[in-house]
């Protein structure tokens, strides 16, 4: 849902996305030390296949974005992880485009990093309720921010995309709810079973 294909957004938006992505990538690569490489790659693989996991939501089904959980577990390194997964999705599944990769990485990666910063600042060990609430906020919040940025990239490309932007926001509401519940459960389990995963880096 959040993948913009090539041919939709205009050149200024493409340039803005590329510049922002290059900056975040530079900072993210610094956090991607050799010791953390395997963990970042596991999360990148999870993000890559997440687009294939469909969860029932009423009459339709939604697929998750998972950028909130990426940020919570990886911090800054979430950005390169998302970029690599997006490139692989474009090449192997045909989701999104090539030139627009910077815009897509910005729309999904920046909310991930922000959610990660919030989660890491507020999370405490052995506080399950707090973990669940923070997880829900990160999961739902990252999807909400991605939706807003996606709509902005569309509207900035032309008034004629306003309707699409509105429809995108509308369809994102169920994703937000499902993703919040999902992230709360997933991070709750990680906090119980392997809390050190949420503390390092």
């Amino acid at each position: 849902m959040a993948h913009i294909p090539d041919g939709v957004v205009t050149v200024p938006v493409l340039v803005a996305g590329a510049v922002a992505s290059a900056g975040f990538l530079g900072l993210g690569l610094r956090a991607l030390t050799p010791e953390r490489m395997p963990r970042v790659a596991v999360l990148s693989a999870v993000f890559f296949v997440a687009s294939l996991i469909h969860l029932p939501a009423g009459p339709a089904s939604v697929h998750l974005i998972l950028n909130g959980i990426m940020g919570a577990v990886l911090g800054w390194a979430a950005f390169p992880a998302i970029l690599v997964a997006l490139l692989l999705q474009a090449v192997l599944f045909g989701f999104g485009g090539l030139v627009v990769l910077g815009v897509n990485a910005m729309n999904m990666g920046v909310p991930a990093v922000l959610a990660g910063l919030v989660f890491r600042a507020l999370w405490r060990r052995d506080r399950p309720r707090r973990t669940a609430l923070l997880g829900a906020a990160c999961g739902g919040g990252a999807v909400a921010l991605t939706t807003v940025m996606l709509s902005l990239s569309l509207v900035a490309s032309g008034r004629e995309f306003l309707t699409v932007a509105q429809l995108v926001v509308l369809t994102a509401v169920p994703v937000m709810v499902v993703e919040a519940a999902f992230t709360a459960a997933a991070l709750g389990l990680v906090a119980r079973v392997k809390p050190e995963m949420l503390e390092e880096g």
Binding site: V42, V46, T183, A186, L187
Partner: peptide, 23 residues
């Protein structure tokens, strides 16, 4: 939704542990 959350959480923990052994 919660069951899937636990599924992916478990997937993460197992895979990260395995990746640490490989590393």
């Amino acid at each position: 939704w919660r069951a899937y959350g636990w599924l992916v959480g478990m997937l993460l923990v197992n895979s990260v542990e395995r990746s640490e052994r490989i590393h």
